[in-house]
Design a binder for these strands. Sequence first.
RNA 1: GGUGGCAUGGCUCAGUCGGUAGAGCACAUCGUUCACAUCGAUGGGGUCGUUGGUUCGAGUCCAACUGUCACCACCA
Length: 887
Amino acid sequence: MKELAKTYNPKEIEQPIYDRWEEKKYFHAEVDESKKPFTIIMPPPNITGQLHMGHALNNTLQDIVIRQKRMQGYNALWQPGCDHASIATEVKIIETLKKEGIHKEDLGREGFLKRAWEWKEEYGGRIVNQLKKLGSSADWDRERFTMDEGVSNAVLEVFVKMYEKGWIYKGTKIINWCPKCQTSVSDAEVEHRDTAGKFWHINYPIKGEDDFIEIATTRPETMLGDTAVIVHPEDPRYQKYIGKTCILPLVGREMPIIADPYIDLEVGTGAMKVTPAHDPNDFELGKRYGLEEICVFTDDGYINENGGKYQGLSTMECRDRIVEDLEKEGLLVKVIDHEHSVGYHDRCSTIIEPMIKEQWFVKMDELIKPANKAVDEGEVRLIPARMSKLYHNWTDNIRDWCISRQLWWGHRIPAYYCEDCGEMVVSKTAPTECPKCHGTSFHQDEDCLDTWFSSALWPFSTLGWPEQTEDLKYFYPTNLLITGYDIIFFWVIRMIFSGYEQMGDRPFDAVLFTGLVRDDQGRKMSKSLGNGIDPLEVIDQYGADALRFTLATGNSPGNDMRFYMERVESNRNFANKIWNASRFILMNMPEEGIHDFDRALLTDADKWILSKVNRLSKEVTENLDKYEIGVAADKLYEFIWEEFCDWYIEMVKPRLYDETDEGKDSKKAALYTLQKVLITSLKLLHPYMPFVTEEIYTTIREYVEEENPEESIMISKWPEYDPELEFAESEEEIELIKEAVRAIRNGRTEMNVPLGKKSHVFVVSQSEKIRKIFEKGEVFFSVLAKASEVHVQADHEGIKDDAMSVSLAEVTCYVPLEDLIDKDKERERLLAEQKRLEGELKRVDGMLSNPNFVNKAPEAKINAEKEKKEKYSRMMEQVTAQLAKLG
RNA sequence: GGUGGCAUGGCUCAGUCGGUAGAGCACAUCGUUCACAUCGAUGGGGUCGUUGGUUCGAGUCCAACUGUCACCACCA
């Protein structure tokens, strides 16, 4: 006889099971036209990454969906891979080099890249192994990397295509510059934070007059690059200055005073200095009025040669010096505290400096149109639906995407410049001859592409695009993407427009958004706070199944969740519960197992639980089809623990221990039902708790009734609703018995009857049908309700007046407690029940006597209320009668 | 400044089509020979943020307000 270990120990079972799955290639998907594909594209974790709770959450959800689909018979592909994470990795490698005293320039581009690849080989696989610990059934044979040859080829293809179409262009514009990373970054990478600052009010002298115009600035150091002052055309205060010239203090530059309605009369002094080279708005104004653009900063954040005597100072030092100097000259009017929004680089928290530079851009206005339409028309469904508002928030205000980065680790821009004439050629491979001067030597553009440029192509580049592969034809468009709402701008939108542009079709049917995993105090888990919980430690302590179940429940899509260890623990207990229930079933299983069972032998209790698990299969399937992962999990938990373990297994025990001949069939039916319900539950639960369900399944499979059960639960058939297993009548009957049992237990506890004390139970009903139900259910009724003997009867023969009584609609149970009865207490209890029923009746009567309700409510609802009225009235009668008997 | 989420028992959260509010944890009482104390039985605890509206009927739909957390934004 096969056995399960006495205690559930996730640590012992998980690794061997995972190894076996991998060995058997269960995760692998191949094109198979006889099956329908179901594809999930994994958000590629950064190679620099360590598994954190966010990964654990979205990979758990992906695995749940893909496992279920696989069991349902889909050709399920979960396409994994890693992202080169251009800037994140480059920063990390620079740090490592720094410890060795090496600067990136010392190595040169080639040397640096060699180091980067070495680093990737060493650490790149780490997160994949961590994902495996979680139980992820991704097709690792298909693992891709964003800098693989294939994916890189897709990147070049897109770049060249889009360039030729005119949608990628090189231009000189004001961009976000990180002085620390020394690269441009996109709008999406700038994090705006409210920062305490000051307003410096400065007098700019009017040329040739003994007068000043007062401007206010939050950044005095930028005045070195000022080239104009602007006022509102209708501002009465400044009418006299319009068209005149003022002198830039400390510098002496003459600047026009221009009128433009852009100015807000309320802000600052109503007069604004214009610094076209260092402010996006000023840049626009500068273009409009043809102002000179004077860049005063170096790339690493110091004042350059245009800053005159301030050259070489850092921006902050410069600010202090300028304020000091202005004060000396009597031009500083006042300083006011002022909170304003400052842009920081999301990677390194350095203040972003707007700079004018030549960069590569993606033109967005046309590209975004099909992507917008797709979401509006539901061709790409966002879950929850409100995310489409967030989506449009971005797409409606989109600006061209700056895609060039002054980095080395990434896809180098395929633009080549002729050494002789400077002509630029954009091409997948280095040109051999200049189309203009026929020169033959070229140098490639130094810049790399934004890391998200390659991520945007992920849904098709991983499937072989631009080659028209079988994989691509079969698996694209993919079915689902599961990711955090925090990267909707970085990634989701860009995948959608890239899908339409390159493939002419959506990249996926739906996007399921997860929220953030926070700590138990609701704080974001972060390295700096040190409040992060390592998923691997949780797995080590409680098992991957417990962690997965915790992450799959207790929240709804798109909402943040708090992570509590207590929840993991209770879910570990849930796994333990299933383990022990299975152990119990296995202990009672005959050596030869259960085969060729005749369903005619089933009792009502068996039919009840079979009917319930059958409907559970239906509901769980429906919920999962709608990606209602948490709802389905709650139903499974409730069913397995309450209905199956606490009720059915307890009900069935007397039958299992019955060794008499007449009990044989009943025992067999019980065993059949136990294994059937267990197997069905295990299968339904498998996507959530793959390890424990597999361990139990493989142990028990040879005893099950099913013919040729699969060798692993993960490739077994998903339970389907079976109309033949719908037993409405049995369900009603058992639910009635449960209700009676609960009422008796409740009464006994309230009367302080010790649990060990058994007692006679009289079940009285006028209805023959109901008496039959209780007669049939006598065996387990006696166990559950602690009855020494059960008497089912139509009259009150043998029942003393002072017996404890509990009334349901058509049945009353009497428990004679003899010396244990406390008459006053029983009276009190009955009076309380009477009061409760009074309330119920009042409510029902209120509804039924309201003509509006009776006329307008649906008939089914009215009937339900009428039935309730009937039921409560009967209960009331019986409680009242019993009170009279008590005296 | 704009937009959005959230507000439900002590805590954390569910709540699908509008039809008398659910779970887990915590708490209280009782219980351990026979799957499980990582357990079982029973119980207490909620005017569903406020105010209006729609409706026979609102936690659920609408509006406003309050609190809170996000996101977006070029106001010097």
